[in-house]
Simulated assay, not measured.
Amino acid sequence: MRTLKAIFDFYLDASIHVAVAVISMAGVTFHLLGSSSDVNLMGFIFFSVIVCYNFIKYGVEAYKYLIVSNAYHKIIQLFSFVSFAFAVYFLLQLNRDIWIATTILGVLSALYAVPLLPSANNLRNLAGLKIYIVAFVWAGFSVLLPVLDAKMTLDWDFAVTFIQRMLLVLILILPFEIRDLQWDDKSLRTLPQVLGIKNATRLGIGLILIFFLMTFLKDEIHQNEIPLRLILSAVLVFILISKKRMQSKYFVMFWVEAIPIFWFSLFWFVKEFF
């Protein structure tokens, strides 16, 4: 039992779970495009997310994450270096458009943690900007890259889907910001800090409504998109109103981050059995 818990904790601590969540979002995009998933792109997204998140988690946000031992930390570092090698390998299999988009998203991710100049703030420390950077990068990896990989145009439906994905990520970040209220520096001006927990929750529910209704702005709607977005929206509302559960380590780190995996599973299940 202790071994299983150690494996599960490593799965969370090494950012494998969040990487699965991001490739699940990319998988949803491929479903919406009616295109097959590209193994090389999914491999690149998976390993690059691990590298990026571990750099941030155990660098600029290390104060939030208790590492039980230096040896455990070194194992995560080694895993991150191996993941970086795999990310580079998969990136080399992709086309030039993916390289350009990845460079832009990578620069944004780097500036999130590393100041452009020694005397400058990183993007994370610019009041209120953190959540939007994360949302944009997630949307870039899970919408823009699959669209470029499928060689489809960046049209109106792409724009709607991109904004919807940003809204989804903003909604998913809220439980983390509520949980981290006791640790986050007040200069970050997160939504719970600015609005309070109750108003931030109300805002989140409003964003869920916009996220769902924006589907009707698309020129072409996937046949299963409306009911599956409705189910997802209901789950998101349940998560936001579960304030007491947000203080649990595993509720936010596992269950909240598992929502994109659940969403992708719905698309897969409907496609396979209906």
Score class of each variant (00 low, 15 high):
R2Y: 03
I7K: 03
L12S: 10
D13F: 03
S15V: 13
H17M: 05
V22P: 00
I23G: 00
M25C: 03
A26T: 02
H31I: 04
H31N: 05
G34E: 03
S36W: 10
S36G: 01
S36E: 11
N40T: 02
F44P: 02
I45F: 08
I45P: 01
F46G: 04
S48P: 04
V51S: 05
G59K: 03
V60W: 02
E61T: 04
Y63R: 12
Y63N: 02
K64A: 03
N70C: 01
Q77M: 13
S80C: 04
F86N: 05
V88Y: 10
Y89I: 08
Y89W: 06
W99V: 06
A101H: 09
T102G: 06
L108D: 06
A110V: 15
Y112Q: 07
P115Y: 08
L116A: 15
L126D: 03
I131T: 13
W138Y: 07
F141C: 04
L148P: 09
A150I: 09
L154A: 08
D155M: 05
D157R: 00
V160H: 14
F162K: 09
I163W: 02
R165C: 03
L167S: 13
L167E: 05
L168I: 12
V169G: 04
L170G: 00
I171T: 09
I173A: 13
L174W: 04
P175S: 02
S187D: 13
T190S: 14
Q193N: 10
V194D: 01
N199G: 03
A200E: 08
I210R: 11
I210A: 14
F212M: 12
F216T: 13
E220S: 12
N224D: 15
P227Q: 06
P227M: 10
L232N: 07
A234Y: 11
V237W: 07
S242N: 08
F251Y: 15
W255T: 15
I259T: 15
P260H: 08
S265W: 09
S265D: 07
F267V: 11
W268A: 12
